[in-house]
Nucleic acid binder design. Sequence first.
RNA 1: UGUCCGAUAGUAUAAGGGUAGUACAACGGUUUUUGGUACCGUUUGUCUUGGUUCGAAUCCAGGUCGGACAACCA
Length: 551
Amino acid sequence: MSEEKSLNFIEEIVENDLNSGKYETLVTRFPPEPNGYLHIGHAKAICLNFGLTQKYGGYTNLRFDDTNPVTEKTEYVNSQQEDIRWLGFDWKNELYASDYFDELYGFAVKLIEKGLAYVDESSADEIAALKGTPTEPGQDSPYRNRSVEENLAIFTKMKNGEFADGAYILRAKIDMASPNMLMRDPIIYRIKHAEHHRTGNKWCIYPMYDFAHGQSDSIENITHSICTLEYVSHRELYDWFIEKLEIFPSKQYEFARLNLTSTVMSKRKLLQLVNEKLVTGWDDPRMPTISGLRRRGFTPKSIREFCERIGIAKRENLIELSLLEFCIREDLNKTANRVMAVLDPIKLVITNYDKGSEELIGENNPEAEDGGGTRVIPFSNELWIEREDFMEVPAKKWFRLAPGAMVRLKFAYIVKCEDFVKDENGNITEIRCTYIPESKSGSDTSGINVKGTIHWVSAAHAKTAEIRLYDRLFTSETPDAEEGDFKDYLNPESLTVLPNAYIEPALADADLDGRYQFIRKGYFCLDKDSTADKLVFNRTVTLKDTFKKPN
RNA sequence: UGUCCGAUAGUAUAAGGGUAGUACAACGGUUUUUGGUACCGUUUGUCUUGGUUCGAAUCCAGGUCGGACAACCA
């Protein structure tokens, strides 16, 4: 047990339970409903549940909470499994709440037999009307005191498909005056003539969340059932069912869910973005989904590190996006090879370079643990450089190119700007330089020191690529909290496509697993939209930029 | 005018009656063939009012503020 780092409150509970001998083996579960793609908030829960059993022994189950057939799909089951594996976790058992439908049905019968559940034929509106409000007690349903025999008979008919949806429901008989609304005779089974993604048409009644989750935990001998804060008030019911059913006493603990600035996290809202085509899909690189982050270029390690750093507590929180960015930069800085790409090109001509071309050596990654190796970069008298690296009238503290100014071309020579060309509209079209032959990178004998180093690509050797730049999805840090529709706060500049950027030839071999630092521009990865003749790169994140822009 | 949960720098998270610490962010500096990285430094905090105590972020009471709860969703 680590003493270095302080424990979060759940680790404390687990350590106490293990040390006191309350449990011999820690068993947790990650229980998504397969009704959407997993997002970074799920990653927090995944890291917590799987992390606990990695640290303390025991195991974690993956259990799909598939009790509502109308929203659930096998597509989601598959994507969720892929995302969990990609994050680097593996479950002991792959389980489904639907595996327990027979057992759950038996639990319902047992409750009826104990006089603790009854069939109600009130309409949804009637039930709501008798439910009371948080400040007023509810009233008993007229059907509350049906006999056990009658309840059993009707419940059997419900199961046998003799009734239409909504005609009857099964309710637990608890206390209509409870201060906890969830204890006011909660509905535990409803009729739904719908095809289930796994059980097909075997069932036409399905258990509600509260009558499936805790029981499933219990069946699996889950020792610590960890969920988010909105389930706090469900805990009383969770315990009530376990007590009345006399089954394994799993215990529920709640932590605060993750909120991230400038994005939304609810599956409902993410689904809206997908359905209304405001993003290209669940894996759009702007989405906070695991698949979106993966496509954007985030690594599993960076996401695990992020989840570690945000901590686990019970206080509502809003994490700044900058922490996620820090985590991915920290990882990529050590692993991504440095290459050169010019996103917004302008021509640079070296007037005194008459060798034709030559091959220079580039260091792949000075930060890599193994040294990174080197590669060949072609150089010639006509280059593409970044338009923003030249200023006709230089600002104060300008290190880059300007009339008369010198900069180093990364991995190459020092050049001096002698002239520039403008078109009839006054736009600069070409920069003309001379180079200093003795200043070659690695064997510089010129004695000249320059402040600025810029990246470049040889025009004759460059390949073109499409580059997609991403920014935060919403202009508001808290789109959920704004007035009106959250979609009104979508950032119109969340995606910028540069169809014709120039990349160095070595990048033509890029593959989908590669991570690259485009020197001075950020971290990039190949997008799956790439074809043999058209490479597409996604910007994962910019480099940290401490340069104060003039003006 | 209910019940439950919570409140520590800008954002998170520690300190479990005894020095308020860490990270990110921000700001400044050193190094640098990336205005990157690395390294160093600076700024900023216990919601409030009482109480218990030699001593309170921590325990107690009241208040304030924020969140959850009235789906045949999970």
